[in-house]
């Protein structure tokens, strides 16, 4: 479901890694709601021609909820969201965010938590760690980064975690041996992965080969939607034709035209925005539909997926 926004002011900005900038936000009126570890908010950014919305994990301690921290990685190839945040947002500026939602909560009945972070994927774990420590939970963090670009919060993590932190700087040639990390674990160990697709796929396939049950592996993908080719979407109910530009998602184009589609994560994982396709081939970029649903071509997740060709007809 679509949700409305909370106005916030940027109270502080800090460069926490060469490509990562952290923003601290406070409510303009009243107080920000408390949040659970793993929560994210969407930041609604006034773009050049239209609104851009990106989801960012809340990376602060849930016990001090009244100020939210988000950390944004400048994407090399971006649709504009991260370059806006890095280039145009200053202390004192006003932004709008959505209330926190959580698709990546730690499983509190786990016996052990194995956290695997890639680059800016460290952010959700920054909200997990204070909570896990307060509960005296057993956990370890494996943090893969490239110090020339990412690797935020290392000093803080080293201090808080000690030997529970395992760092792998690819610039220094440190590689993470996933097989070693995933071997010898006991029952009730849950694995959480946040980072680029390649890391998530690597962990999942290594775990499967070792015999891990799938339901112990949890992940949150952290790629901003990639740009694509422009196409047209024809809507059968309204008769409208919507032009989808190369640097906007189908969902954003529909919203721009006043068509409301239920949505939550805006990253292809939650399933809320599923829309029926009547004509046209789909380029699926989501993590929600099954293989059968994809090959049937009968539906699309408009927040990330696009037309494979020039045209789609949608049941909207």
């Amino acid at each position: 479901m679509s949700i409305d926004s909370i106005p916030v002011r940027v109270m502080a900005i800090e460069q926490v890694a060469p490509m990562i900038r952290e923003f601290k936000l406070e409510a303009i009126e009243g107080r920000l709601p408390a949040f659970s570890p793993g929560s994210h908010v969407q930041v609604i950014m006034p773009g050049a021609s239209r609104e851009i919305r990106n989801a960012y994990s809340l990376c602060g301690d849930p016990a001090t909820p009244r100020r939210y921290s988000i950390a944004v990685r400048l994407q090399d190839v971006s649709r504009g969201g991260s370059s806006f945040m890095h280039g145009q947002v200053n202390v004192g500026d006003q932004l709008a965010i959505t209330p926190p939602a959580n698709l990546f909560a730690p499983v509190m009945t786990a016996r052990k938590h194995l956290l695997i972070a890639g680059g800016v994927g460290i952010t959700p774990f920054m909200s997990y760690i204070p909570e896990l420590k307060r509960k005296g939970a057993d956990f370890e963090l494996h943090y893969l980064y490239r110090s020339s670009q990412t690797g935020a919060y290392l000093d803080q993590l080293q201090q808080q975690l000690g030997s529970a932190l395992h760092r792998y700087d690819s610039v220094q040639g440190n590689k993470c041996d996933l097989t070693a990390v995933l071997s010898g674990q006991g029952p009730g160990t849950h694995v959480y992965i946040c980072g680029p697709e390649s890391l998530i796929d690597g962990v999942r396939s290594t775990a499967a080969a070792l015999g891990w049950p799938d339901s112990l592996i949890h992940f949150e993908a952290f790629a901003a939607p990639e740009p694509g080719e422009p196409f047209k979407a024809q809507l059968t109910h309204s008769g409208k034709t919507v032009d989808v530009a190369a640097d906007e998602s189908l969902l954003e184009a529909l919203e721009r035209e006043g068509v409301k589609v239920p949505n939550l994560c805006r990253a292809g994982v939650c399933g809320q925005c599923r829309t029926a396709v009547l004509e046209g081939d789909v380029e699926h970029r989501d993590d929600f539909l099954s293989n059968d649903e994809r090959s049937s071509g009968s539906c699309i997740m408009p927040c990330v997926s696009r037309a494979a060709g020039k045209h789609l007809t949608l049941d909207l």
């Binding site: 949700i3 709601p33 959505t98 926190p100 939602a101 399933g271 809320q272």
Partner: peptide
């Protein structure tokens, strides 16, 4: 169930 699991705080 799909609707309920998506309810955010404050809504």
């Amino acid at each position: 169930l799909k609707y309920l699991t998506a309810i955010p705080v404050g809504r």
